[in-house]
Design a protein around this nucleic acid. Structure first.
Lengths: 224, 224
DNA sequence: GTTTGGCATGTTGTATACAAAATGCAAGGC
DNA sequence: GCCTTGCATTTTGTATACAACATGCCAAAC
């Protein structure tokens, strides 16, 4: 039993409900700006209003829902400005993760990331977008694990969740996709060279490209 | 009625209860590691368990409480490592705020910050620590307002709340206080000079000094 | 025609009751 | 004496009931 974790994971209805609602929001079934009705939703989900309200609290703290006292809960509709603000912060956090990772990366880490980069390139060659996203996620998670700052990882995750629905809807096209894959390759090179500033720049640039893709999807939603 | 906001602010019991609990945590009345009993606390606060549970959700999402399914809620006890991780992220966020502020600062902003710096120095001369903290807070809030990124401000606020109890307990002594005041003066100078990188460095350094003060208070709590 | 007031209905917020899980203690077995 | 089992009690999680607030509709007044 060396460090082998056999604890049985516990969950509660609010957590399960929040996870389900998160998915519904990301997939756009609960649309941005939509007001959620507790009675209907609790019937649909097959639970009482109490855990559902607690789930709302969870999602509100993640920025996915907006709670208005006595007026219920709305799915957050991000403006282009909101998106830019979130990306601005996320770029800073990713840059930090890159710097921390450079300071802490091992050869084993680099091997694993190389393998993941190989998978990423295969998925790209196959035009397999779901697989590409999955591996992309694994690469970023690994980078965060190397950075070894749980506060950073959690903060990033929270911000990222807000944008997930939008990114889900902003598909990569050919040229953008080629560029993204090449950027990942460059990031791996910078990490292997322990080039903190270089990796930071690449991560920020990579994220900026994602921002542009999302903003393209959101044309006409500016508050200006 | 030009932009004058006359909306009546609404609150709910979970929000009020969360605010009360936040204060109790910061003041150490609810001690780090303490397990909270819903029945007792709801009686003491004079409300039923339902809004109290919602308040727990709010505070858990802020990192002040830890919720364990079927085992209740604990006040989070930060280790020195947790503190370092949080400061690491906060330094990055403050650096970003500094850079954004440099890009957006106006002469009126600089006047206001100069006035605040004057108040800070007066409070320091008078040895009035509560006033010093209040003005210090006002300066940082103003800097965040100039940065004009609400996501950044909210993210910083959330992280800062975790550390508030610890900072509340780590008093500034003479030499450290002198240095902090001088650092604020330097920050204002860098901002006026629109020196983004310089301001970033100063903010990070300033925060690092705060980190050391907090870690001093926490001697013996290392996980190593 | 427009505005105001009253009332019914629906929704949200909170309190209470019930169910499930955790904890503590005592008795029995080895 | 120590460990295990069973039971009572306490605490947490969820469902339901009640209270408060919001919304919509209709009639009366201007």
């Amino acid at each position: 039993m060396d460090g082998f974790n056999i604890a049985i994971a516990r969950s509660t209805l609010p957590q399960v409900a929040a996870e389900r609602l998160r998915t519904l929001i990301i997939e756009g079934i609960l649309a941005p700006g939509a007001r959620l009705n507790e009675r209907e939703l609790s019937e649909q989900l097959g639970l009482s209003r109490t855990p559902l309200r607690e789930a709302f609290r969870l999602l509100a703290s993640e920025g996915l829902l907006l709670q208005l006292p006595n007026r219920g809960v709305q799915v957050v509709a991000l403006s282009r400005e909101d998106v830019r603000h979130a990306f601005e912060v996320m770029a800073s956090l990713e840059g930090l993760a890159g710097e921390l990772a450079v300071a802490r990366v091992t050869d084993a880490d680099l091997d694993d990331l190389s393998a993941l980069q190989g998978e990423l390139e295969k998925a790209h060659k196959r035009r397999d977008l779901p697989a590409y996203y999955r591996v992309n996620r694994a690469i970023h998670d690994r980078l965060n694990a190397i950075a070894a700052n749980p506060v950073l990882a959690q903060t990033y995750r929270t911000l990222n969740a807000r944008l997930h629905a939008l990114r889900f809807r902003s598909n990569l096209n050919g040229a953008k996709w080629d560029r993204a894959v090449a950027e990942h390759r460059s990031m791996l090179t910078a990490l292997a060279a322990r080039d903190g500033a270089g990796l930071r720049d690449l991560l920020v640039r990579h994220l900026h490209a994602k921002l542009q893709a999302v903003l393209e999807t959101m044309k006409g939603q500016d508050k200006e």
